[in-house]
């Protein structure tokens, strides 16, 4: 049998037999080289309670070339693209070793959720958010876990998330912004989506708010 197939089959079987790790693997189609992996968000992080799914492609020269992985579930994390799910992790690139497996790589992704690396970001905007205001970042990450990964509802700490369950998703919370800030510029006559877009790009959060003048925001709003 083809060495790659033998190894992948064994890896899938090992993962099935291992009941402790809570890592699951399933076929996407008939090919054993296109899989969907999943794991629970790590405890004690904003991802806790979420169920995270990862698209896995096994390259022809696996295990000598790294697995190709990206998040299917939307994740708010400095090393994961909030738009595409692309992952910035060294073992998926240069630091790949053929002794790594599907399971160990998924565990690495899980631990990546525990320890973001904002200095080597995949999503620069999210990384900026993480750097300026940790608590606001975590709140947003938790909100994403709730709406995209089926995590528990964010505890309305300090702020009123008055959207009833099942109603339209709160786009301000998704962008990690304050409702008061968005309202402020919306009142000047700009479209809400535009305001959200510009404030997110400018990282209008936490201590940064004091550094960005109203004129600057308006200037950006007029440009966009």
């Amino acid at each position: 049998m083809d060495a790659r197939l033998r190894r992948v089959n064994k890896e899938i079987a090992d993962c099935k037999n291992d009941k402790t790790s809570k890592i699951t693997l399933e076929l996407v189609d008939e090919s054993p080289f296109h899989l969907k992996g999943a794991f629970p968000g790590p405890e004690g992080t904003p991802y806790e309670g979420g169920h995270f799914e990862v698209d896995i492609r096994i390259p022809d020269s696996y295990p000598f070339q790294p697995l190709k992985m990206k998040f299917i579930t939307k994740v708010y994390h400095p090393n994961i693209s909030s738009a595409s799910g692309a992952i910035c992790l060294d073992i998926l690139k240069d630091a790949w070793s053929p002794v790594l497996t599907l399971k160990s790589t998924l565990i690495s992704l899980q631990s990546l959720l525990c320890s973001p690396e904002p200095n080597d970001p995949q999503d620069a905007e999210v990384a900026k958010h993480y750097m300026t205001s940790r608590s606001s970042f975590e709140e947003t990450a938790r909100y994403w876990t709730h709406i995209y990964a089926g995590g528990p509802e964010a505890k309305a700490a300090g702020k009123a998330r008055d959207t009833p369950v099942g109603a339209v998703r709160d786009e301000i919370a998704i962008a990690g912004l304050e409702k008061a800030h968005v309202d402020q510029f919306e009142a000047l006559g700009f479209e809400r989506t535009k305001v959200i877009d510009v404030l997110r790009r400018l990282n209008y959060r936490g201590a940064n708010v004091a550094k960005i003048t109203e004129d600057r925001v308006v200037e950006e709003l007029l440009k966009s």
Binding site: A3, S61, F64, I91, S97, P98, V99, L100
Partner: peptide, 25 residues
């Protein structure tokens, strides 16, 4: 045969001459 496949893949697919040990780290 794993060494052979690994080194071949490094050279042929990555054009790499700096070939590290296969063990992680």
């Amino acid at each position: 045969s794993c060494w052979n496949a690994y080194i071949t893949s490094k050279i042929r697919e990555e054009g790499e001459h700096w070939i590290r040990c296969m063990a992680e780290g």
